[in-house]
């Protein structure tokens, strides 16, 4: 079972930019409702494979995506 990571954003527009950049780069990411325990900042967060965090961060930086934090979600599918 993969461990998922969640990227948070300040705005949903940034979440859509992130999703677009990562999908274009071939990462199997999904937009999900932001887990309440993590934030009330923006309603949409991005779920990714935690093992790919360095590559995900690199793509987001390249795409000028501002994030509001990366979180590990243990044991979640």
């Amino acid at each position: 079972m993969n461990t998922h990571g969640v990227v948070l954003f300040h705005t949903s527009s940034m979440a859509f930019r992130a999703e677009k950049a990562l999908r274009r780069a071939g990462f199997p990411v999904n937009l999900i409702p932001t887990p309440r325990e993590l934030s009330s900042d923006c309603g949409i967060a991005l779920r990714f494979d935690w093992a790919q965090r360095p590559q995900v961060e690199a793509v987001l930086e390249q795409a000028r995506v501002e994030t509001a934090g990366f979180h590990r979600q243990a044991g979640r599918q």
């Binding site: 527009s13 677009k20 309603g43």
Partner: peptide
């Protein structure tokens, strides 16, 4: 409702708005 709810229809709508931007 784009950018509000996080379910698939909200996400689909938000994506369309972002693409227009």
């Amino acid at each position: 409702n784009p950018g509000r709810s996080g379910h698939r229809l909200s996400v689909a709508a938000g994506r369309i708005v972002y693409e227009a931007r």
